[in-house]
Design a protein around this nucleic acid. Structure first.
Lengths: 222, 222
DNA sequence: TAGATTGTTAATCGATTAACAATC
DNA sequence: TAGATTGTTAATCGATTAACAATC
């Protein structure tokens, strides 16, 4: 690897910085110090400066950070400075919801194809995109420049799709299926999992724990 | 606090253990060692044992872990041993997709109400649940035992809903809106954020980085 | 009993926070 | 210039991994 490895924790935080900088820009704020951003975002100023300095010096001593400039730089880092074409494999409710989610376009992600194996969906058009049958996918990928595949289908079907996607030149998988595709994919393919039920389980845990803490049942220390 | 604090990192991993144990159970596996589970899940055996020992000794020396028993214990820890009623606020495509997601029920989460402020949706029934107008929410929360609110609406509307939810006795918010509700909620209310566009941005970053690593453009070390 | 494997303590590694010199 | 605030090094904290004694 030619550039130094950036930790996952840092990458996790970048989109949040990006979001706050967008809101500041909307609000007409031109510059901000790490201290001010820190009190807004409830993280330490030190962390903000450390995070940003992984990518170079975006600020200026005595001044702070220029909101517009910093936001643009983060956009470049995240690869939001150009369009990413995406296909959605699995056109059930969730797949269709994603296809309808036009906000993605603002951030540079464009849904160009919808696929399913259910013949009943043939002829259905979602947000201007016709649902195609899954066996058309290889030809579609060959004919179109597609970077990302979102997988919104049952886990066994998702696994079966992987070779087809790799064959079609896909290098990024946005995985909503309840399986760890990252374990069965070559290391040059990016996978982001969105495991909704796991998120819901964590919410359940936190709910339970907060309630136990609040209840006076077992307050005595050992 | 009466019990020792469990780190977020551990909680994050529990649902994944739960999922793997479920698959092992399905496959008829009765017992498993931390070493075998470790090679299956691609984490260290040490981590598995450390994680589980936060909650007590679920294994047995020389034997390993009983799959069924361990799974049940994790279910209890996560609060999956009883039903959680959930309302969905915002009945657009994503809200409806969640309402249709019957898998949640298997894990103890039941959608009992759907709400929106769009009068055009009045009369629409999704997965057996009628969409109600948002002004009916306080009465609904008073009349029904609801623990969780999923927020699938634009960020400004989501923020406005918070006081209504708190007033209605909601203690867990599953937040799909692009705003950090955890910062505006009392500390005894659990919030889990699902920020889809942030996930997509991380995917974009990883895609970009893997491609740069693969390209021979700048291979020389400093 | 002997072998296997946990539970747990100690060592290592990585990430966060604090501090401050550099500099705008 | 003086004040403000970054960039960066050093200190702290927390999480992961390794090691091994306890024990089934």
């Amino acid at each position: 690897m030619s550039h130094k490895e950036i930790s996952k924790a840092v990458i996790k935080r970048l989109p949040r910085y990006y979001r706050y900088l967008g809101e500041l820009k909307e609000a007409g704020v031109e510059r901000i110090s790490s201290a001010d951003l820190s009190s807004l975002m409830k993280v330490t100023a030190s962390q903000i400066r450390q995070d940003l300095n992984n990518f170079g010096g975006f600020g200026q001593q005595g001044y702070g950070y220029n909101v517009q400039y910093l936001r643009d730089e983060i956009a470049k880092i995240l690869g939001l400075d150009h369009m990413h074409n995406m296909v959605i494999i699995g056109s059930g409710h969730l797949g269709q919801a994603l296809a309808n989610y036009t906000n993605f376009e603002r951030n540079g992600f464009q849904v160009v194809g919808l696929f399913d194996n259910n013949k009943d969906l043939l002829g259905t058009v979602v947000n201007g995109i016709p649902i195609r049958m899954i066996d058309e996918l290889p030809a579609f990928l060959a004919a179109n420049e597609v970077e990302i595949a979102a997988l919104t289908l049952p886990k066994d079907n998702a696994k079966k799709m992987v070779p087809v996607l790799l064959e079609g030149g896909i290098h990024a998988i946005w995985n909503f299926a309840h399986t760890d595709l990252n374990l069965i994919v070559p290391k040059d393919v990016a996978v982001q999992n969105v495991h909704l039920s796991e998120s819901l389980m964590r919410l359940s845990y936190n709910l339970k724990t907060l309630q136990e803490d609040a209840s006076p049942a077992d307050q005595k220390e050992p």
